[in-house]
Design a protein around this nucleic acid. Structure first.
Lengths: 349, 349
DNA sequence: CTGAAAGCGCTTACAG
DNA sequence: CTGAAAGCGCTTACAG
């Protein structure tokens, strides 16, 4: 029927032959160059359509210098935080003609040697690391890299854009203090990322101390579990989170954990917010559902995405060189239904 | 410090020179060929490590025949249905050494000419279409294509794997009938996909008819809205979903819509399931939260992913040729808290 | 087990 | 505005 059916994909050569021009001209048309006469352009476009020609990105990448692709490293598509950041990055990048190549760590691990290898093999022009960076990733250093969302391990030469986790921890704690809570716990979960978790905890602790309260030992909870570790000791949720000496409120390092904990508490007969107030961090979409109504700290992910792209572009254009920049973006408290004043009865006063 | 710092990426040539072997040998080592002596292999591997050499996928793709990449077309990363299917596909494909290239329609539209163009330019070996297929996509015909999740528009030559939507509609309706409901509505939303929605509705209608009940006009709801269209007429939720003649239960075409509708109903003073039972479809992760507890129809997405990959591989290996195959995978009802018996009071009996 | 050579499908100066 | 030529970094037969 046509060239394709002959078993071979049409190439720029076939197009040139069909249009009666040279290879180079076809290439110019493909790139939308203005220095092509309308008549020839039309001929080439018609040939492209007839042959159902699709340029090979591999050849273009190999021959040309630019791939117009930015690599993004994420941990897991199932985590809404990454997805929302990714969405923001795409919205910023698409109008600039850049495509995004996503490398997911959790599920792609077996295919590539190292997390960044797959991206480097694609010859991406820059990389956004949206996971907790590891030493391994340091080998990326010869293309621009921006780390989004984490501030802990700083790779040499990488710009950083992260939300102000410390401020977030303070805001969450301040909110609980304002409601009248005095015994306020901090909960981390299995998926806690070193950097974010640490800074949020530091903000929490500093806010408590300015109120003259000594923070208690952080708790560690495995989502789904009916027990929680206080320091080293595993305790049933009921014992750890209700009773006269227990906290009347907890700040959980992220929303996933907070929502899970609320579910587990209610399964253990601890009502939220009546018996226990819970604050999360991230403001993922479900947190806003009435049925969930989680008080949380919102990160402006679109703003973070915007900044990450700007930093990358500055390096790509050469507009900025030299020392890595570190940008902190503000966060905001979203007070919802999972927090309320402590129960008087609980104080046994 | 090393070759990289000279500004040029190291190539297979640099590696060959450093290891004192030919280009071809390096290539063989990269591909893990067994016909390389251990000594030379070690020399090459050391050179690779020292030079921090990363092969160019573009060159490999261009020179070789196989890209070992499967393209996946999804609508939106923010929709959990796609993400769960994608996860399943990756889990199947990674052990086989295939990588997945994802093309997202919603956000990538501006970069590529047509949805499949980006994928074809990558020279993917096969494509999984996880969105509602369009005529446009028919041009993919010369590589294996499997359509996942939809059965409506069948592209020439494409295999299809879809859940049994008709059965799902029947199960949802049967559940409501068993609870004692007789006035059962069907709700579609703005994002309803022609295929799935139609089959679910057909299942719903046939189940009602076997119970001797004539289905009423489907309703159309814009998520977030306080009104709902019954046929052509917009009505406040209160009027449409409570009152003596209103349905006592609704089957919403998918979970996103169902959860949104529950929220909107409760905002309008209609309590679920006391005043209205709601069934969804998909069994997305949030549906299982106690606070949500949505009765829904579960699709075995991992099973669907497995089948999609198997079908693709059969075509790639040439194990299967000829007519497209259509596979239906079963679905299951998950009864939860959003459904209950109708209120006697509502019947005004 | 190893090397020299051709070629994959483009882009990019370089001439005209 | 257009064409001929070189080359991007690999893989793959083909010899040895």
């Amino acid at each position: 029927m046509n060239v394709e059916d002959a078993g071979r994909r049409p190439t720029i050569y076939d197009v040139a032959a069909a249009a009666g021009v040279s290879k180079s001209l076809v290439s110019l048309v493909l790139q939308g160059s203005p220095r092509v006469s309308p008549a020839r352009r039309a001929a080439v476009e018609q040939a492209i359509a007839e042959l159902r020609y699709r340029p090979s990105r591999a050849a273009a990448t190999l021959a040309g210098s630019r791939t117009r692709t930015i690599g993004v490293l994420i941990e897991d598509y199932r985590n809404l935080w990454f997805v929302e950041l990714l969405t923001g990055l795409q919205l910023e990048l698409a109008p600039l003609g850049y495509r995004v190549a996503v490398e997911e760590l959790t599920l792609n691990a077996s295919v590539d040697a190292s997390p960044v290898d797959g991206l480097l093999a694609l010859r991406v022009e820059g990389i956004v690391i949206a996971t907790e960076p590891t030493e391994e990733m340091a080998s990326v250093a010869n293309i621009p890299v921006v780390i989004a969302g984490s501030r802990e391990l700083v790779l040499p030469g990488a710009d950083v854009v992260a939300n102000d986790d410390h401020l977030g921890g303070r805001l969450a704690t301040e909110h609980l203090l304002d409601l009248g809570h005095r015994r306020i716990g901090y909960v981390r979960t299995a998926t806690a990322e070193a950097g974010g978790d640490r800074a949020r905890h530091a903000g929490y602790a500093s806010e408590l101390r300015s109120a003259g309260i000594e923070p208690s030992t952080p708790m560690w909870w495995e989502p789904g579990s009916g027990t929680i570790r206080v320091g080293r000791r595993p305790m049933p949720l009921r014992d750890a989170l209700s009773g006269p000496a227990a906290p009347t409120a907890v700040f959980v390092w992220n929303d996933h954990g907070a929502i899970g904990l609320i579910e587990a508490c209610e399964a253990s007969g601890i009502s939220v917010p009546r018996d226990l107030s819970v604050v999360g961090f991230d403001n993922i979409a479900v947190a806003a559902l009435n049925r969930i109504s989680l008080t949380t700290v919102a990160q402006p992910l679109d703003f973070q995405a915007e900044k990450a792209v700007a930093m990358l572009l500055d390096r790509l254009n050469g507009a900025v060189t030299g020392k890595p920049r570190h940008l902190s973006v503000p966060v905001e408290l979203r007070a919802r239904g999972s927090t309320g004043p402590p129960r008087r009865a609980r104080a046994r006063a």
